[in-house]
Amino acid sequence: MVPTPSLRLNVLDQSPVRPGSTPRQALLETVELAQLADRLGYARFWVSEHHNTNMLAGSAPEVLIAHLGGLTRRIRLGSGGVMLPHYSALKVAESFRVLESLFPGRIDLGMGRAPGGDRLTAHALNPANTFSEQDFVNQLLDLQAYLRDERVPDTIHERVQAIPLAATAPELWLLSSSGQSGLFAAHLGLAFSFAQFINGHGAAEAVQSYRARFQPSLELAAPLANVAVFVLCADDETKAQELRAAMELQLLRFGKGERGLFPTPAEVRAYRFSAQDQAQLVYNQSRIVSGTPEQVHVQLTRLAANCGVDEVTAVTITADFADRRRSYELLAEAFALTAATSAAEPVAELAE
């Protein structure tokens, strides 16, 4: 195991639409959390890409990042991630060059190859999408070439540049819940993030394989990895268990193909778990870290050590926004994050 003397903490926010809330409120809550994370000393704040769902409001991370950049001061902002097969590599390179030019040294370009929704929607976004691994790798190579301003004879890169030209480039990350993209990241010399909140098994093996196969690149001299997990931190164990039970029910529903809003405490109390549900709860255990600040500190420190990473990304979803906000505050306190000395202006009050 690799020790983690100074664990960095990140946030991945999916802009969840809470019960009784609206998509606009979900996006405004993401803005408020980004400002909070900036003030509390989190290292990165990533926003996700999802399509054709009433559960999550974030469909265009590059647009949201641009807004967050003007309302924060220090924290790195990124996509967790852009689903690259939906788009041309040139368009993604240019979008993130604009972001990097506006907020130099603060932009992460996290990329994935999952649909971020259903296959029909993926086809609507890009009718030419073949879902081929080789096509994805080719897109990554094109993206690197555009961001490096490579002029490769007899290719598109001989005559086409990604603009604006910039002195710096976004940090490139590959996201994965299976480990396959970790191999791509290692081969291309990119950073790697394993989504343990999606797949509770295999994070340590995936990161170890990535590190063992890593080849230095112009972007990255040494391997850089993190692990993302659901984190629910509360002032006491009773509250933490309440938050965990709601997340467990949501994961059960999602596994059954149910795409409803996040369950309320009343819905959790009324639900009757079957024997099959109980087995799935056990299987999903490692996707969630929950408890008091002291308990969560122990669990996340152990997770980081087991996976050989020095940064962990927290994904927190609750039915009540105050609980979500409080979880991030307690987590920052537990790890003694250094609060920013220059805070961003507060966001406007959430619309009713």
Results as ranks from 00 to 15, higher is better:
His123Trp: 14
Ser59Gln: 13
Asp38Lys: 15
Ala319Ser: 14
Val17Lys: 09
Pro127Cys: 08
Arg97Asn: 10
Ala186Leu: 12
Arg39Phe: 10
Ser6Trp: 09
Ser177Leu: 14
Leu220His: 03
Leu125Asp: 06
Ala43His: 14
Arg287Thr: 04
Glu171Trp: 08
Glu267Ala: 07
His187Phe: 14
Leu12Lys: 07
Glu32Leu: 08
Tyr146Ser: 01
Arg119Tyr: 14
Leu125Ser: 10
Arg287Glu: 01
Ala66Gly: 02
Gly308Asn: 06
Phe194Trp: 01
Gln25Met: 12
Arg211Cys: 11
Gln241Trp: 09
Ala221Gln: 13
Ala240Asp: 12
Val315Ser: 03
Gly255Lys: 03
Val347Ala: 15
Gly182Tyr: 14
Ala195Thr: 02
Asp108Ile: 10
Ala240Lys: 03
Phe103Val: 11
Phe192Leu: 02
Tyr87Asp: 03
Ala240Phe: 00
Ala57Cys: 04
Ser290Phe: 13
Ala332His: 06
Ala206Met: 09
Val298Ala: 13
Asn306Lys: 12
Leu188His: 13
Thr316Cys: 11
Phe254Asp: 01
Asp154Lys: 09
Asn226Met: 12
Pro293Thr: 01
Asn10Leu: 03
Ala169Val: 15
Glu158Tyr: 13
Val2Cys: 00
Leu249Arg: 08
Phe262Met: 07
His51Lys: 09
Val17Ile: 15
Leu252Asp: 07
Val268Met: 01
Phe214Ile: 01
Leu303Ile: 02
Pro127Ser: 01
Thr318Met: 06
Arg18Pro: 12
Asn138Asp: 15
Ala245Cys: 06
Ala203Ile: 04
Leu172Arg: 03
Glu49Arg: 08
Ala34Leu: 13
Gln161Leu: 05
Ile198Ser: 05
Phe131Thr: 08
Asn199Ala: 11
Val207Tyr: 06
Arg106Thr: 10
Ala167Pro: 01
Lys91Arg: 15
